[in-house]
Amino acid sequence: MSAISVKNIEKSYDKGAVKALKGINLEIEEGELFGLIGPDGAGKTSLFRILSTLILPDSGSATMMGLDVVKDLWKIRKIVGYMPGRFSLYQDLSIEENLNFFATVFNTTVKKNYHLIEDIYVQIEPFKKRRAGKLSGGMKQKLALCCALIHEPKILLLDEPTTGVDPVSRKEFWDMLGRLKAKGITVLVSTPYMDEASRCSRIALMQGGNVMEVESLSNIIGKNNMILYALRSKEMHRLLKDLREFSGSLSAFAFGDEHHVRLSRDEEAEELYAFLLHRAHEMVNIRKINPEIEDVFIQLMQEQHS
């Protein structure tokens, strides 16, 4: 049985003016650490809000551990832990009080499920008397994760838990998610950071309310192989314009301090180099690279548009 099963879910806002989800299908197995990857506005949060029973889908159906998100909402609320994108615990209650409150609301105690949160809680325990509003961003996320875990959920929904968190805390956070996966909890996590995709057992690439691809990271990259070159020159801005004008380039875009250009054949690299020298570029540096998740994402996005 799938832990999360989503069938043709559609959701629009403002009486149909904004289509957030355009018929999404997903099957997530028990014990998976599944990543929803996509830019802002891809529909990730809408999907989370439907799965956590906060809003109703316009059409389609979804089940969590076999329970329907519309009909069995009270049962689902007992087995799902949800951590929204924005920190939303009581700022005027301490770490301890927040945790105790959410434990009692779920009819359990911190003591009973301490084993689940122990590795996370020990990091914030020294500050347990401190009000949640006075915690740093990373500590807030740890507390929110503890509160989402305190009732021993079977499924954990984490909406952009690492957005706005520093790189060290981000790494720590993903380590924690890895340990939760090892405990058998199904984790669905969304992120706009493509580099976090490697931490997931499988990922779904989302864009504009659609799921473009569902695979493991290596499979996605393997399946969408491409001939890719990274380029630099003295005038980066003009370089990008010229790369796009080159007849053999399938796509060209800025990627950090380099430009990535996709070609249809390796032989074209020589022609490209000659073309750029002809356009009077200086210090041209060209090298072949292996595509990363972001290259695949951009390619899929372009395919979807054309």
Partner: peptide, 11 residues
Amino acid sequence: IGTMEQINVSP
């Protein structure tokens, strides 16, 4: 503050 949502996903 968003705590209403946390309450709404609880039993």
